[in-house]
């Protein structure tokens, strides 16, 4: 079986995505769940770059442009997520997600 570099890139990004997925599903700490989601976002960016690098015409740079915008959205998401974590902590004095069952109060 002959694997091209693109195969390796895709395997790398799917491994990273699944580590993030398992982390986000299994942990109860809100910060670790957020970090798992960040890993999944990074895996998606990795795929954009891999397909851009091995595309027939990389001169147009669509992959790079998409990743630049995606990183900006991911940064906004991280800031809002961690603000939510601090807000949860203020209400229930810990950040364990199974205990965060109330929306208000």
């Amino acid at each position: 079986m002959n694997l091209s570099p693109l195969h390796f890139c895709l395997l790398f990004s799917s491994g990273l995505f699944c580590i993030g997925l398992i982390g986000a599903l299994s942990r109860r700490n809100a910060i670790l769940v957020l970090l798992g989601i960040e890993l999944m976002l990074n895996a998606a960016n990795l795929n954009f770059i891999a397909f851009w690098r091995f595309s027939p015409n990389p001169e147009n740079g669509h992959g790079i442009l998409f990743v630049v915008f995606s990183i900006a959205v991911a940064a906004a998401e991280a800031a809002v997520g961690l603000a939510l974590v601090i807000s949860i902590y203020r209400h229930q004095k810990n950040i364990r997600l199974p205990e965060a069952t109330r929306l208000k109060g």
Binding site: M1, L3, S4, P5, L6, H7, L10, L11, S14, G15, F17, C18, I19, L21, I22, L25, W52, R53, F54, S55, P56, N57, P58, E59, G61
Partner: peptide
């Protein structure tokens, strides 16, 4: 759940003939 997703992804990737151009960007 994560293992199942990983298995599906790896199966799909390995069965796809990806040649990939190596033109310099």
């Amino acid at each position: 759940a994560g293992g199942a997703v990983f298995g599906i992804l790896v199966g799909a990737i390995l069965r796809t003939p990806l040649t990939g151009s190596t033109r310099s960007p």
